[in-house]
């Protein structure tokens, strides 16, 4: 099924407007393949008919489903490892020291996809920092995709997913088998509050954040939007808070108020003092 230039343009603009995700010309194949399951589910015969409905605005919620289908949700437990080694080796110990009087820790995972990243962080907190057990932990995890948020709240992973990057020792400790799936145990699941937050829009009121994971999401935005998101982050991050970006992302040439920490391959930044 080929998509017409007009229809591609319409979807491109819709997605840009709603999620800030940039679909360059040449990504027609991506739109085609991602729309197929949606067409099937909605009982629509072609992208042309889908775009017709979107233009007519007859079916509310359809636009959200289109945006949802065009998010890329690739993720895994302990993805890239180094950021989590930095978290465990430096950052959490540092925050425990700094916040020892308030005994409060605030973490925000801003593009959590199917949940492997926030659950990785939660496992590190539970497994390696028993002293945090009587702290108040505010752990917010968000994404724009409702489908992904549903997956996060269910905390269920296939065998292929738990095979990727998850230490066997942690699988044994924090998961249980449910049929063919592996489910995050309730006490870990309950640590995290999952919310729908669109990074392209003004942020909701949030507590000031000690650690912000925002990995592999800025790459989908244009420079202006990257700058705007980093600008908003400056306001929610504590002055000494930590920001994690993905391996292919940087604040360089976008926002000069951040500096990269000398923790190898961690993609960890702090606001300049």
């Amino acid at each position: 099924m080929a998509i017409s230039t007009g229809d591609f343009d319409f979807i491109r603009k819709l997605v840009l407007e709603r999620s800030a995700i940039v679909l360059e010309p040449g990504k027609e194949y991506l739109v085609e393949s991602r729309m197929l399951p949606l067409l099937h589910k909605e009982g629509l015969e072609s992208i042309e008919i889908l775009v017709g409905k979107l233009r007519g605005g007859t079916k509310n919620g359809l636009a959200d489903l289109v945006v949802d289908a065009l998010t890329t949700n690739e993720t895994s437990f302990f993805r890239d490892i180094k950021p989590f080694e930095a978290l465990k080796g430096h950052i959490i110990p540092d925050i425990i020291e700094k916040n020892k009087t308030t005994r409060e820790l605030t973490i925000w995972c801003g593009a959590s996809s199917s949940g492997q990243e926030p659950f990785t962080i939660a496992m590190i907190l539970r497994n390696d920092f028993p002293q945090l057990l009587n702290w108040k932990i505010n752990f917010i995890s968000s994404d724009i995709s409702r489908e992904m948020l549903q997956r996060c709240r269910a905390g269920k992973y296939s065998q292929l997913e738990v095979n990727r990057g998850l230490p066997a020792m942690l699988l044994v400790k924090f998961f249980e088998r449910v049929g063919t799936d592996w489910k995050v145990k309730d006490d870990l699941l309950k640590m995290i509050q999952f919310r729908e937050i669109n990074l392209a829009e003004p942020f909701p009121v949030l507590p000031k954040v000690d650690v912000l994971f925002l990995r592999n999401v800025l790459i989908y935005f244009d420079v202006e939007m990257k700058r705007s998101v980093l600008g908003k982050i400056k306001r929610v991050l504590k002055p000494e808070g930590y920001l994690f970006l993905g391996a292919a992302e940087t604040t360089m040439n976008i926002d000069a108020s951040f500096e990269r920490l000398p923790l190898p391959q961690s993609g960890c930044y702090q606001l300049k003092g």
């Binding site: 738990v162 990727r164 066997a168 699988l171």
Partner: peptide
């Protein structure tokens, strides 16, 4: 792929555990 088997292997001294089927990424990670 039973949980009990993973536990048993780790207790016997295995350091890691991959359930077949596997991919290159899984092994490398």
């Amino acid at each position: 792929t039973e949980m009990s088997q993973v536990v048993k292997a780790l207790e016997a001294g295995a350091n890691e555990y991959v359930m077949k089927p596997f991919t290159k990424e899984m092994i490398y990670e």
